[in-house]
Each structure stands twice: as structure tokens, then as C-alpha cells.
């Protein structure tokens, strides 16, 4: 990625994020969104995170093509169980990585 392209991505994403966070406070302080939109916004996080996790988990090194590694899938499953059980990101990360190391060594 060139320096110019990186600067463009950085600026657009920073400005967009600022507008998302400040838009309503700065412009529409006295209005609320229709309930349908507020509810839909609550589902954006889970939907995009799930899509992202799956895409990163099954794609090959270059980002295109599908490359499913059994040890990684098993490690993710274990991490998922720990995430639901402990509700703690640190435990989740530790469980997933340790599981991957053990499974890869077998």
C-alpha cells in the first residue's frame, strides 16, 4: 500500500468515524431516530463482526481464495466456548492461541 493510499484511507475513515460519533450531538441534538433504525443499528455490530471473523478465518494468506486449516477452526471453536463461558476477551484470546499451538504441534 502506497503512502498516498494509506493517507487517504486514514483520513476518510477518521473523518467518517468522527461524523458517526459526533453527528447527532452536533447537528440533531433534539431529535431521535425512528425505533426501526435504532434497532437495526444494534444489529450492525454482530453482523459485521461475524462476517469479518469468518472471512479472516477461512481466507488464504493473500486475502483471496479459501483456505480452511482444521487446527485453526478447532482453536476458534474452543475460543468461542471460552468466550461464552468466561465472557472475557483475555481468556478468549489465551484459550484460542494455546489451543492453536497445541493442535498445530500434534
Amino acid at each position: 500500500m502506497s503512502h498516498g493510499a494509506a493517507a487517504l484511507v486514514l483520513i476518510v475513515c477518521a473523518a467518517g468515524t468522527y461524523l458517526f460519533r459526533g453527528g447527532v450531538i452536533l447537528l440533531f441534538a433534539d431529535r431521535t431516530f425512528p425505533p426501526v433504525i435504532e434497532r437495526a443499528l444494534q444489529n450492525v455490530g454482530p453482523a459485521v463482526l461475524a462476517a469479518l471473523t469468518v472471512n479472516l478465518a477461512v481466507s488464504g494468506g493473500g486475502g483471496s481464495g479459501v483456505d480452511i486449516v482444521p487446527a485453526e477452526m478447532a482453536a476458534l471453536l474452543i475460543a468461542g466456548v471460552v468466550a461464552v463461558w468466561r465472557k472475557n476477551l483475555l481468556w478468549t484470546l489465551a484459550a484460542g492461541m494455546v489451543a492453536l499451538w497445541i493442535l498445530a504441534a500434534l
Binding site: C13, R21, V24
Partner: peptide, 16 residues
């Protein structure tokens, strides 16, 4: 990136 951060619109609305 913007899709991920779009949830912040909800925060902005709630904190207005």
C-alpha cells in the same frame, strides 16, 4: 471500517 463504526451513530443519538 465505516460499516463497523456505523454503530456509533446510535451512541451519538443516545448521548445527545
Amino acid at each position: 471500517v465505516l460499516v463497523i463504526n456505523s454503530r456509533h451513530v446510535m451512541y451519538s443519538a443516545a448521548l445527545a
